[in-house]
Design a protein around this nucleic acid. Structure first.
Lengths: 189, 189
DNA sequence: CGAATTCTTGATACGATTCAAGTGGAGTGG
DNA sequence: CCACTCCACTTGAATCGTATCAAGAATTCG
């Protein structure tokens, strides 16, 4: 499923707690991993108006049989997903919530920039705070207070569904964001 | 790098905090994702005596050109890694530490069983508590106290580098472990 | 056996969740 | 057009979970 918009992959536990495990933006292939895996091990929601295109598995299979270069590129996409997952694990396990949140905004800005979905220092981010709390794995109340920290030090602003980054340097610093962490997209290969 | 033993992938932050992002056991292909990605975005440590075999990327590339079925299988391996990552994200974000720990032991038992590295209800697990704390993303002290909870209710035991599961039912229940979560390994395809 | 690691436990402080209440804005129907 | 409702956001207070500090016990290894 190819995407234009913002979508999320998530799991919900028995008691209804929900954790978002991935965010997808324009140009992402949302469930490509389901092709080798043959299973969808989680749910998908659109978080904005989304246009989607579908690829069917028999076509993908044919690609693996006749187009090795393209196959490696598709493989790469799933492996980039994995790299992002790992970064999220690090953020959840070892960063403060403030730093984790800063890191996510850095990551999203970089990813959206690559696909031309940023405007100067801002991008559309139409989630609710409750949804973002489900991304970061914290409570809604705490999310709100953590967001306030970033706002108070004028690192960024998030009003009427758009995020504006006022102090990229500071945000990168808070996040300990390594700017080359997503360079797979652009590096020559 | 093909493995016999236990190894981990990790990242360390500026202040020295370390987070383990993946555990690998016998039969795993530890850094296969580095083939499409061309980069190693993290470190690897052996956590037990390990025997390793190496595959070089030019051979892998040749496989993608002539062996589509095998290519899909290799791709599958990296995608299973991703599924485990996602489960870890859920565990870190939305489970209690006790439940997270129980979930990890369930996962390891299942994975080790598939490769014949369990003996009845036990398996070799030669990590230190500090290392396990780096897996779960908690402090050493808290790890120890959480472990005590599982020990106290006689769910499992972990002495002299081997884990013995005394009450699988209870462990699965605590973990909300879905026993089919790793069935990619064994299901017919 | 002795030294060094690893494990264990208690106490204190800090961070995060939950509960509760109130504010503000967008949409709806009279 | 206004009043009303619903939902998202915001904030404070109490409680619980987790980190950190500190010290001692047990284990492993040379």
């Amino acid at each position: 499923m190819l995407l234009d918009g913002i979508a999320a992959r998530y799991k919900v536990l028995e008691d209804g707690r929900r954790q978002i495990t991935a965010l997808h933006v324009a140009g992402d292939f949302v469930d490509l991993h389901a092709f080798p895996l043959k299973t969808m091990d989680h749910g998908i929601v659109a978080l904005s108006v989304c246009h989607v295109g579908f690829a069917n598995h028999s076509d993908l299979k044919r690609i693996t049989e006749t187009e090795p270069h393209l196959t490696r590129l598709l493989w790469l996409l799933t492996v980039i997903d994995g790299a992002i997952h790992r970064e999220w694990i690090v953020a959840m396990g070892r960063r403060s919530k403030k730093s984790h949140m800063a890191h996510l905004f850095c990551e999203l800005f970089m990813r959206l920039k690559v696909v031309g979905k940023t405007h100067n220092n801002s991008f559309s981010f139409p989630l609710t705070q409750a949804e973002l709390a489900n991304v970061l794995g914290i409570s809604l109340v705490h999310l709100n207070k953590t967001l306030r920290l970033l706002r108070d030090e004028k690192a960024l602003e998030w009003v009427s569904r758009t995020v504006t980054i006022h102090d990229w340097r500071n945000l990168v610093h808070l996040a300990e964001f390594e700017p080359n962490y997503l360079n797979f997209y652009t590096e020559p290969r």
